[in-house]
Amino acid sequence: MNDINTNNIIEVKNLVKEFKGLRAVDDITFSVKENEIFGFLGPNGAGKTTTINIICTLLSKTSGEVTLCGHNVTRERNKIRNCIGMVFQDPSLDDKLTALENLYFHGLLYNIPRRTLKERSEEVLKIVNLTSRKNNLVMTYSGGMKRRLEIARGLLHYPKILFLDEPTLGLDPQTRNKIWDYIIKLKKNKNITIFLTSHYMEETEICDRIAIIDEGKIIALDTPDNLKNTIGGDIITILSEENVKLKKYIKEITGSDVQDAKDGKIRFEIKDSSIFIPKFIKNSPVKILSISARKPTLNDVFLDLTGREIREENASARDNIRSRMMGRMRH
C-alpha cells in the first residue's frame, strides 16, 4: 500500500467487528500521528475498548485493515506487541504479588536486562508515587493505587505507543491530574504516542486530536478546539416563565435552533454572549428567571451530534463494568 503516510503510526481502514450479530465497531477509518495524544471519546458500549483490543492484537477483526508502526495487525502480531504498552480498562495485576514483583515479571516478558529492569522499576514507581509501598502485596492496595501501578507497568518497557483504556476511571481528581501531567511530560520527553479513551470530557481535552465515537461509528474527528468551534459560539441556558413563547422569540432574533435542556430549561448557541445577553434580557417578551452562558465543551459537541449526553461516570463505574464483564462470562 503506497498511500500510507509515514507520519502515521497507526492506520485503521474500514474496520468492522461483529459479535454474534452485534456490530460493535462499524466501518471506522482513522489514523494516529506519531508523537500525538489521540483520544477516543464516547459513551458506554460505543466500541472504544473493542477497537483498542483489535489494534493491540488481542481480538481478531471481522474486516478492514489495521497497521501499527507499519506492521499488519493480523500477520505481524509479535512485532506490534513489542512496541506497545497497555493499560486495560479492567484490572490486570496479580493481586498475590507485590508491586515490585508485578513489574519484575512484566520486565522479564519484555526481555529487559535485570539491572536495567531494577532501575526502571524504581523510576516508574517514583512517577506514580508508590515507592514506599513497593514491597506490599497488590491485594492490599486501594483502587487508585492499583491503577497507578498499572500505568507504571505500561511504561516500564518504554513503548512507542501507550494505550490507556479509561486510565483514570475511579481515581480522585488529585491523582487524575497527576497522571495527566505525567502523561503530557512523557509525550514531550520520551517521544511516545498515546492512545487513550475516556468518559471524562475535561481529560480528553489534553488530546491533540479526538475521535468522538458512538454506536461503533466515528461521528467526528478533530482537535478539541476545532470540535468546539463547530458549535456556533457560546452556550446559553435559560429558565423562563413561558418556554414556548420564548423559544419562538429567540428563533426569530437569532435564527438558531433552541433545544430543551435539563430541569425545564432551554438552551441555544450564540456567537458573542457578552453583547447578546444584556440586550436580550431587556427586550425579552417573557420574564427570565435565570440565564447563564458558557464556552462549549466536548459534551456539547456530543450532544449536538447525537442529541444525547455522554453520561459522566462516577467512581463506581469500574465496579459496574466489572460486574458486567462477569455477567458476560456467564453466558
Binding site: C56, N82, D90, D94, L109, R322, M329
Partner: peptide, 15 residues
C-alpha cells in the same frame, strides 16, 4: 485471562 495478570501477558511479545 478475563480479569487477571494473563490478560496483560497476552499483549507481551511472548508466544
Amino acid at each position: 485471562r478475563e480479569f487477571g495478570f494473563l490478560r496483560e501477558v497476552l499483549v507481551t511479545p511472548i508466544s
